[in-house]
Structure formats: C-alpha cells, structure tokens
Computed example of a mutant assay.
Amino acid sequence: MLAGKGIRAIAVMWAMTAISFILVPLRLYTRIYIVKALGVDDHVFNLAWVFLLLYTIFMTISGYYGFGQSITTLEMDMAVKAIYNEMIGQTFAVLGMAIAKISLGIFLLRIVVKQWHRISIWISMVSLAIVSVMTAILFWIQKLPSESIYDPRVPGRLVVKVTPFSILLGSWCAAVDFYFALLPWIFIWKLNMKFKEKMSIAISLSLGFIACVCGIIRTVDLGGLNSSNYTLDTVDLIIWSAVELAVTLICVGIPTVRPLYRVIVHGSNLEDSEGGYVKHNNSDKSSHVHMQNMAKGNTAFRAKDEGTTELYISRNNHSDEEVLVGQNNRTKRGIRVREEVRVETNY
C-alpha cells in the first residue's frame, strides 16, 4: 500500500498528468476545427502525454509495493517489485521528455524563417533523441544480467555507470528547453506586426524556460540513482521528472490553443476568415509583389531572410498568430499567391 513519501509523489504525478491532459483535447480541437492544420507535432505531443501516463501508472504500481518508503522496512520481494516497476516508469519518463521536446521542435520548424534556424532545431531534436535512447538502454544494461540491477539476490557485474549519462541527458534537456524558448525571440522580430502581437507570440512560445528550470532541479537530484536506499532517495527525482515532463507538455500546448482562446474571448471565427501564406525567392535585394482582390481591412506582414521572403496575409481580423500556427493549411483555405501572380523586382 502507498505510504510515506510515496503518497505525496504519486499524488503530484497524477495531478500533473491530469492537468497536462486538459491540453490534449483542446489542442486537437483547435488544430482540427479552428486552425484546420493537424500536423505531425500534434501526434508527437499526444504520444508524449501517453508516456507521462504510463510513467505515472508504473510509479503507482511501484508505490503499492513500497516506493517512497525506506527499503529497510520492506520485504525483499516487495522491494524488488518496487524498484523494478520504478525502473520501467523512469524509462517512460526519459523517452517521454525527449518526445515532448521534439513535438515543440517540429512546431517551431513550421514557423521559423532562416535556414540555420531549421538546421539548429533538427540538430537539437536528433541529438536529444540519441542521448535519450542511449540513456534508456544503458539504464537497463548497466549491470548484467539486468535482474541484478533491481534484485540484490542475483549476482551480476557492472558494465557501465549510468549516472554520468543521466546527468548528460538532464543537462541536454535543459539546454534544448532553453534554446527552444529563446529561439522565438530571435525570429519573431523580423515579422512586420504590432509590438503587442510580437510579445504575445514570443512569450507563449517561450514558456519552455519553466521546463528548463525543472530540468535543472531534476538533474541535481540524480544522485539518488546511486543510493542503496533506492525506493526512498529517488522520490524527489521521480517527482521532478514528472513535473518537468508535464510542464513541457503544458508549455508546448499553450501556444497552439491560443487561436481557440481568441475565438472564445474575442469571437473571431476562422471559418469566416481566411489566411494565406506564400514564400517566394528573393534573388536580389528586394521584391515587390502585386496582389489583386485584397479586401479592405486585410493585413499582411513579411519575414525577410537571406534570399527569401515569407509573406503572410490575414483577412477579416484573422490574427497573425493564427496564420503562423496554421501554415500547413495554406493549400486548403485563404489567399495564396501562385505563379500566375505578377512578381516584379525593383531596385
């Protein structure tokens, strides 16, 4: 039965799982019915939440066998089952955190302008995935046979110390959180939009700073992995791992549900408004685009880059942010500047 610190840990984990789940249906509704641009990042986001759920479930099972209590007060069979289920839960946490951050990376790939932005995001995602998978594997083969890791009655030999890799993973997760939170402040200022809109979008995309702080705290608590009193000394690590994963999901989910917020609060309806997006090559210094049928009240902004101009067109109070989020829908709705549109280059 749950006892000791296990009660607090499991309660926090289920609370984090429930809070982060709120964003799952809200995000799906927003992307399917409001923005109409369901993408890969949405499926990756949902997968990350499933991993958080599995993490919580296995830690609850571990708590039933004694997680959160001193290992000296547990029967050997109970302690073995507690550690075994805790290790399974930690594996889901390690992979889930990487998946959640990859979801944000894929989302950022849809709205960044510069080529080096895309390259840096891909490097961050791929490297984080490699470190996460490597740490998860080493976690289970640090001793052979693997049963000797969680059952002291089974003789085994040490293959590799997993703590340095866990510290590397924790540090890299925090670094990726920091970079993904900082990146919007770099490219958002190139958009020709109101300062209030820039700040609103940049802040919503930069909530990952909170996950970065959680990741730093979790990394500090990694010392519990080497403790002989594993079921008790890893409580803080387990809690902060769940908090970091949940906060990452919340930070990733909030920017994508802002269009739904605008519909509810401001009454803007994307069904009645159309947005478009176009990219055209800027082979020289500047370009001038002639567009026809631009209704009064339409807004447009450009994000200029080396050799490329990103042109976003918004109609009927369609927010710039909603256009950013819904770029993948550009082939279905709204104004799109195609090849037949006259493009002149002036110097």
Rank of each mutant, 00 (worst) to 15 (best):
Q69G: 06
A93L: 06
L95C: 14
Q69R: 14
E75N: 15
G63C: 08
G63D: 06
K81D: 12
Q90L: 12
G96T: 06
G63P: 00
A82V: 08
A79M: 04
D77Y: 09
G63A: 09
E75A: 15
G66K: 11
Q69P: 04
S70N: 13
A93H: 05
T73R: 08
L74I: 14
T91P: 14
A82P: 02
Y65S: 11
A82N: 03
Y65Q: 10
D77N: 13
L74F: 10
E75W: 12
G96H: 01
N85S: 01
G63T: 06
Y84F: 02
F92D: 01
L74D: 06
T73M: 10
A93S: 11
M76L: 14
T73D: 10
Y64D: 12
L74G: 08
M78W: 14
I71E: 04
A79T: 04
I83Y: 00
Y65N: 06
G68H: 04
I88D: 01
F67D: 03
M76G: 10
G96R: 03
T72I: 13
G66R: 10
T73I: 14
G89M: 00
L74T: 13
T72L: 07
G89H: 02
G96S: 05
Q90K: 11
K81C: 05
G63L: 04
M78G: 15
N85E: 06
M76Q: 12
T91L: 07
F92P: 09
G89Q: 00
Q69T: 13
E75G: 15
F67N: 02
T73V: 15
A93R: 02
N85R: 01
Y65H: 13
K81H: 07
A79F: 06
G68I: 10
Y64F: 15
T73G: 08
I71N: 04
L95G: 09
G68K: 05
G66D: 07
G89W: 03
I71M: 07
V80D: 08
Y84N: 01
Y84S: 00
G66L: 14
A82R: 01
V80W: 01
Q69C: 09
A82D: 05
M76I: 14
I83F: 01
G68Q: 08
G89Y: 02
I83P: 00
Q90G: 15
Q90M: 13
G68E: 07
